[in-house]
């Protein structure tokens, strides 16, 4: 893990955020995500970002380790940044070489997109770091409950989600083991040009897929052996309730939302 945390990984803890009901946390994430996606102005996004990063420190979450874990994703963010710089041609030209042009608007747009995506990943980390995959699935089940009217299979969806979330670290672990087995047989995943690196991946991906299919089959058999049937009304071993902390948390993000609307209105005026 190179000293970083995997995205989607749960870190056990006992701070305020851990005591919040997963449903409440999910609604908070949806609200903040909507604000991040709706905001087009760079300054407002920066304010939202500063607020989100402050929350990491207030809740005593390992911010540095999360940033280290984002190394692999930063590569895709940089590609998006570069594409937006060169595809936006409006605004004052800051740099020009042959057909390549960097404009002021292009730079602002690229920065906005970069920060927006970065914040979305950070927001996702805030949820997954502090909530067990099973609880996230429970939260989704509750959120999607009204969709039952349209015969949407909510319970099956929640089960699928919880299985998928549960197996992310297992698959990463498995990938590490396969990588070690192939590295010790002379495979090199780190050096060479882009094509050489892509071509070095089948020894990694084939065992990973084969083992995943085996595992999926084993899970299906184990579930059937315990008489699992889809579509049934299920009860939960741990019942998650709402506490005073939840009310406080709810009013906190409600006030963020109100402040945001007031801020945007004034800013537009």
């Amino acid at each position: 893990m190179n000293g970083g945390l995997l995205i989607g990984q749960y870190v056990p803890g006992n701070t305020f955020i851990y005591k919040i009901n997963p449903l409440n946390k999910l609604i908070f994430c949806i609200v903040i995500m909507t604000l991040i996606l709706l905001t087009k102005d760079l300054n407002t996004i920066l304010i939202l970002g500063a607020g989100l990063i402050t929350l990491f420190f207030i809740f005593k979450l390992p911010f540095k380790a999360i940033l280290k874990g984002m190394k692999s994703i930063i590569f895709f963010l940089i590609i998006t940044f570069i594409m937006h710089i060169f595809f936006t041609q409006e605004g004052v030209i800051l740099f020009e070489y042959s057909f390549l042009k960097i404009t002021s608007l292009g730079l602002i747009n690229a920065s906005t997109i970069f920060i927006r995506l970065f914040l979305l990943i950070l927001l996702n980390s805030l949820l997954t770091l502090t909530t067990l995959p099973v609880d996230i699935a429970w939260g989704f089940e509750k959120i999607l409950y009204p969709a039952k009217i349209f015969r949407f299979p909510v319970e099956e969806f929640a089960l699928m989600l919880s299985l998928a979330l549960r197996f992310i670290p297992v698959l990463f672990n498995e990938m590490n083991k396969i990588m070690e087995a192939q590295k010790s047989r002379g495979a090199d995943f780190e050096s060479g040009n882009f094509i050489k690196r892509i071509m070095s991946y089948p020894p990694l991906l084939i065992p990973l897929f084969v083992n995943s299919f085996y595992r999926a089959e084993e899970i299906a058999v184990a579930m059937e052996a315990r008489c699992y049937r889809g579509g049934g009304k299920r009860t939960h071993y741990n019942k998650l309730g709402f506490s005073l902390n939840d009310i406080f948390f709810f009013f906190m993000y409600l006030s963020i939302l109100i402040l945001y609307i007031i801020f945007i209105k004034n800013f537009q005026n």
Partner: peptide, 12 residues
């Protein structure tokens, strides 16, 4: 040379 516990991790 390293021989791992599970052959499924290296066969491809």
């Amino acid at each position: 040379g390293m021989i791992f516990q599970y052959p499924d991790h290296q066969i491809f």
